[in-house]
Deep mutational scan, measured.
Amino acid sequence: NQASVVANQLIPINTALTLVMMRSEVVTPVGIPADDIPRLVSMQVNRAVPLGTTLMPDMVKGYP
């Protein structure tokens, strides 16, 4: 099973992602692959992302 990117904390709308905000976890449904975490750094979320939420491609501005 492939690990996905999961919010490690509440991420407010328009926040630029940092490594501490994300963790990898095997979840269903599958979200953004954990391998993409380095690419996500400094990209902004377009909505508030609660703790434990799987990051989906449509939540991150400019992804992929």
Rank of each mutant, 00 (worst) to 15 (best):
A16I: 12
P29S: 04
Y63G: 04
V26T: 12
D36R: 11
S4K: 00
M59G: 03
S42F: 11
A7N: 00
V20I: 13
V45A: 04
N8F: 06
N14C: 07
S4P: 00
I11K: 01
T54P: 08
R47E: 10
M43W: 13
M22Q: 00
V6L: 10
V5I: 13
G31F: 02
P57F: 12
T54D: 02
K61A: 13
S4V: 02
V26A: 12
L10I: 11
N1W: 12
M59F: 14
M22P: 00
L19I: 09
N14R: 07
P38V: 11
A3Q: 08
P12D: 11
L55C: 02
G52I: 02
K61S: 12
G62M: 08
A48L: 11
L40T: 01
S4H: 02
A34R: 05
S24T: 13
T15F: 07
V6T: 12
P57Y: 13
D36Q: 14
I37Q: 05
N46H: 13
V6K: 03
N8E: 06
A16N: 06
P64C: 15
T28I: 07
L55S: 00
Q2H: 14
V49R: 02
A16Y: 13
R23W: 03
V20D: 05
V60D: 01
I11F: 02
E25T: 10
G62P: 05
L17Y: 02
A16T: 08
D35M: 13
T18L: 07
R39D: 05
N1E: 15
P29Y: 04
P12E: 06
L40I: 10
L55T: 01
G52S: 07
V5W: 03
A34M: 06
A16V: 11
V45I: 08
D35P: 10
N1P: 15
P29V: 09
D36Y: 12
P29H: 05
R39P: 03
Q9V: 07
V45S: 05
V6F: 02
R39C: 12
T54N: 01
L17C: 03
T15P: 01
P38T: 12
T15N: 04
R23C: 04
G31Y: 02
K61I: 11
N14T: 05
T54G: 02
N14E: 08
A7Q: 01
V30M: 14
M56V: 09
D36N: 11
N46V: 13
P64T: 15
P50N: 10
R39Y: 11
P64F: 07
D58P: 07
I32S: 00
V60I: 10
M59C: 05
L10V: 09
T53Y: 14
V41W: 03
A34V: 08
S24N: 09
E25H: 07
Q9I: 06
M43A: 09
L17T: 01
S24C: 06
V6E: 01
V45L: 12
I11C: 03
S24Y: 09
V41F: 08
V60N: 00
M22N: 01
L10C: 15
L19T: 06
M43T: 04
N46Q: 12
V45E: 00
A34F: 08
A48V: 12
I13Y: 11
Y63C: 05
L40F: 02
I13W: 13
V6Q: 03
V45Q: 00
V20T: 13
L10Q: 12
V45H: 01
E25G: 10
V60T: 01
I37C: 04
V45Y: 00
Q9F: 13
V49A: 04
L55R: 00
Q44K: 13
A16S: 09
Q44D: 04
V45R: 01
N46K: 11
L55V: 07
A16K: 08
P33W: 06
G31M: 02
M21N: 06
S42I: 03
G62A: 11
V5Y: 02
R47M: 10
L55W: 02
I32R: 01
V49P: 01
A3F: 12
D35I: 10
M56S: 12
N1G: 15
T18C: 04
P64G: 15
A48H: 13
V27M: 07
S42Q: 11
Y63T: 04
P50W: 10
P38N: 11
D58W: 14
Q44A: 15
P33I: 11
P38M: 14
S42H: 14
P38K: 10
P38E: 08
V5R: 01
A7M: 05
S4M: 02
M43Q: 07
A7Y: 02
R39T: 08
V49D: 02
M59E: 03
S42L: 15
V45C: 05
V30Y: 15
V41H: 05
R47N: 05
L40K: 01
N1T: 15
R47H: 10
P12T: 07
Q2F: 13
T53H: 13
R47T: 10
L40Q: 00
L17P: 02
A3I: 08
L51R: 07
V49Y: 02
L19C: 15
E25F: 10
R23P: 02
S24Q: 13
G52H: 11
T28A: 11
M21D: 03
M59W: 08
V26F: 15
I32Q: 01
R23H: 04
P29M: 05
S4D: 00
V41T: 06
T54Y: 02
L55K: 02
M59S: 05
Y63M: 06
D58I: 12
L19R: 10
N46P: 02
D35S: 13
M43E: 04
D36E: 12
N8Q: 10
Y63D: 05
T15C: 06
T53E: 08
T15W: 07
V20H: 13
A48T: 08
G52E: 04
V41G: 01
P38Q: 12
P57E: 08
D58T: 15
R39H: 10
N8T: 15
A34K: 05
D36T: 08
P38F: 12
N14V: 03
K61R: 10
L55Y: 01
V26H: 10
L40D: 00
P12A: 08
P50F: 13
L51N: 11
P38H: 11
V45F: 00
N14L: 08
M56D: 04
T53G: 11
V45W: 00
G62E: 13
N8M: 09
D35R: 05
Q2V: 13
S42V: 03
G52T: 03
N1I: 15
L51C: 06
L10M: 09
L19M: 14
S42C: 13
I37P: 01
G62R: 08
D35F: 09
L19D: 04
P12G: 07
V41A: 05
V27Q: 04
S24A: 13
D58G: 12
V60L: 09
A48D: 11
D58L: 11
T53K: 12
N1S: 14
P57C: 10
P57I: 07
T28R: 03
A48W: 07
I37A: 09
M22Y: 02
P33M: 08
N46G: 09
Q2S: 15
I11T: 00
P57D: 05
P38R: 08
A7G: 03
K61D: 10
M43G: 03
T53M: 15
L40V: 05
M22L: 13
L40H: 01
S4F: 03
G31W: 02
E25P: 00
D58V: 08
A7H: 01
I13T: 10
Q9M: 14
R39F: 07
M21Q: 03
M56P: 01
D35E: 14
L10S: 11
A48R: 12
V6G: 00
I11N: 01
N46T: 15
S42W: 12
M21P: 00
M43F: 14
N46L: 15
V45P: 02
A34S: 10
S4C: 04
A48I: 14
V30H: 13
M43I: 04
G31A: 03
M21A: 04
T54L: 05
V49L: 09
L10R: 09
Q44L: 09
A16Q: 08
G31L: 02
D58Y: 15
P12C: 08
M59Q: 04
I11A: 01
V41K: 06
P12L: 09
M56E: 06
Y63H: 06
E25D: 15
Q2T: 14
T28H: 08
P64M: 14
A34E: 08
V5T: 08
T15S: 09
T15I: 06
N46A: 13
M59L: 05
L17S: 01
R23A: 05
I37T: 06
L10K: 07
L40S: 00
L10W: 10
D58F: 14
N8W: 06
S42R: 08
P57A: 11
Q9G: 05
G31T: 01
M22K: 00
D35V: 13
G62Y: 06
K61T: 12
L40P: 00
D58K: 08
A34W: 08
D58C: 15
N1F: 15
Q44C: 07
T53D: 08
I32F: 03
P29D: 07
A3G: 15
Q9R: 08
A48G: 07
I11G: 00
I13M: 11
T18G: 04
Y63P: 04
M21S: 04
I13D: 09
M22T: 01
